[in-house]
């Protein structure tokens, strides 16, 4: 085991002519974690992956992956320990899934039977001898994942891996990533599908305009923002009474049609308010929603825009 982090980026910048794709990004991804790399199109996600893969050289800064430099003499050794799934890859349509995967296995210097085992693992064994042409989008994606898993990589880089997967397949996919994490595999996956992803990743990094806007666990990100917690109240109370509950100016209240109340409270004032609500009459149910990834994402990407409320 190496003590080095899976990915260590230090002040990296990358320009393409006049365009600055990445600018001063520093990020350390320790081994054995699942990271979500978030950002809108053109935020620099793919450029960052390509830098980690050694497909590009940084214009400034240093990239170390599993303790090695991805471009240069160590690249060959490093590439045997990395698995990559590009976005929207179209595999060789005229080959069967098994043939394609065996081809990739040979290129990675692995025995053909490893390809067969991986086809089982991604549940493509039944379709292994059909041409890829006949595969659905989800099957292609699973084949791509099998390809990335060749050679027991220590680091997985997955570009939009769940596109085209149905919810059940998505769940299985993340389960597979968790199993791998338990074996010490690090995963960096990019995604623009925000809802639900926070349950599956340990940490997120948000890129925007070529800069790293935020990184850390959901809790760390929440702590770094003034985004309110949403408290939903169900119950019966006479009109006007609820205003007494929320005299604090930092708290805003919205009435819903059914008479329910939605109260937005800064994270710091949450417990005080809850105590009041518990003691109040007529409250039948309380549900609590911390700011979701979407709200955090919107906050970090557009810090100047009006505060968005969690749904």
């Amino acid at each position: 085991m190496t003590a080095a982090p899976a990915i260590a980026l230090e002040g990296i910048g990358r320009r393409f002519g006049a365009l600055t794709a990445l600018n001063g990004v520093s990020l350390t991804v320790p081994e054995g974690q699942i990271w979500g790399l978030l950002g809108h199109n053109g935020a620099g996600k793919t450029t960052m992956m390509k830098l980690v893969l050694g497909l590009l050289r940084p214009s400034t800064g240093t990239v170390r992956v599993l303790g090695l430099t991805p471009t240069g003499p160590e690249a060959g050794a490093l590439r045997r320990r990395i698995g990559y799934l590009p976005e929207a890859v179209a595999f060789y349509d005229d080959l069967s899934g098994r043939e394609a995967l065996r081809y990739f296995a040979r290129l990675k210097g692995r025995p053909a039977r490893e390809a067969d085992g991986l086809l089982e693992r991604v549940e493509l064994a039944a379709a292994a001898d059909r041409r890829i042409k006949t595969y659905s989008k989800g099957m292609r994606q699973r084949l791509g994942l099998a390809q990335a898993l060749l050679g027991d990589p220590r680091l997985l880089l997955l570009d939009e891996p769940t596109v085209g997967l149905d919810p059940i397949a998505t769940g299985r996919f993340y389960q597979l990533l968790r199993d791998l994490r338990d074996q010490g595999v690090t995963t960096l996956l990019s995604s623009h599908v925000l809802p639900g992803i926070e349950r599956h990743v340990d940490r997120v990094a948000i890129l925007g305009g070529g800069r790293l806007l935020a990184s850390g666990t959901m809790e760390e990100l929440r702590a770094a923002t003034p985004l309110p917690v949403s408290i939903r109240l169900c119950g019966t109370w006479p009109p006007g009474q609820w205003q007494d509950l929320v005299s604090d100016p930092r708290i805003s209240v919205r009435r819903h049609a059914a008479g329910d109340l939605e109260i937005l409270v800064p994270a710091g004032g949450k417990l005080d308010l809850l105590r009041q609500l518990m003691a109040a009459e007529g409250v039948a149910d309380i549900s609590l929603t911390p700011p979701g990834l979407e709200a955090l994402y919107a906050h970090f990407c557009h810090p100047d825009s009006p505060r968005r409320e969690t749904p």
Partner: peptide, 13 residues
Amino acid sequence: ESGTLTLLLTYPI
């Protein structure tokens, strides 16, 4: 165009 070139170049080749 099909995206496999990028993939192949991340292999030890």
